[in-house]
Design a protein around this nucleic acid. Sequence first.
DNA 1: CTGTATCCAGCCGGATACTG
DNA 2: CAGTATCCGGCTGGATACAG
Lengths: 117, 117
Amino acid sequence: MPSGSRRSDCPVSCTLELLGDRWTLLVVRDLLLGKQRFGELLESPEAIASNILTERLRRLEELELVERTPSETHGTRGTYRLTSRGKSLGPVIKAIKIWGLANIPDTATAAADVLRK
Amino acid sequence: MPSGSRRSDCPVSCTLELLGDRWTLLVVRDLLLGKQRFGELLESPEAIASNILTERLRRLEELELVERTPSETHGTRGTYRLTSRGKSLGPVIKAIKIWGLANIPDTATAAADVLRK
DNA sequence: CTGTATCCAGCCGGATACTG
DNA sequence: CAGTATCCGGCTGGATACAG
């Protein structure tokens, strides 16, 4: 985990510096849902651009939140999984989900949502 | 609560569209800590720029997460408080805080942290 | 299919000056 | 002090083309 230049030592601020944008946690959400391949991540309804996805996956790897396993046959094809550290973002995503459901009209979770409880 | 153009109807995605940046939740954090005046919000160690703070407060007001009470004597001077809807972001901030504390080195919460439990 | 690279418009946000 | 306005460089991210 990096602790380079930071605005403060507040854990909220630091986390936001790392993950506080409109795409990163969405990728984490999809990985929590079990998606593993690049194409699967692209297919989500939010339609992330492929270059953005590449960049986010790389950053998540650097942060050791995601682990990439290259395919043995196709050098280009890999699978992505959350590390245990990455999985520990589950409660964050869940809290966001709960807030959104309660406060934003017409939001709904996917039927297969593994975060449901 | 707006439900204008959105990338999807996922509550995580919608919440991220509204609050997913590096500053908005930091303002909410400070309001949760009890700060009420513009100057207090400026004083936080992250040193938000005043124009950014103005813009974020305005947006939070539009979202009905923050309520501004103008001063009766000084037209320019007001106080800001979270609405109940805004306060309901507490669990989100707390989940982020917990994750940061556990995963980012040398992070620490302010002594007066009302989110502590 | 799995990515990477590039172009580029627009937004974000830091610095700063300014008004009441 | 409380807030607004403006300038402007740099980053974000959409579109698209391309390579293995």
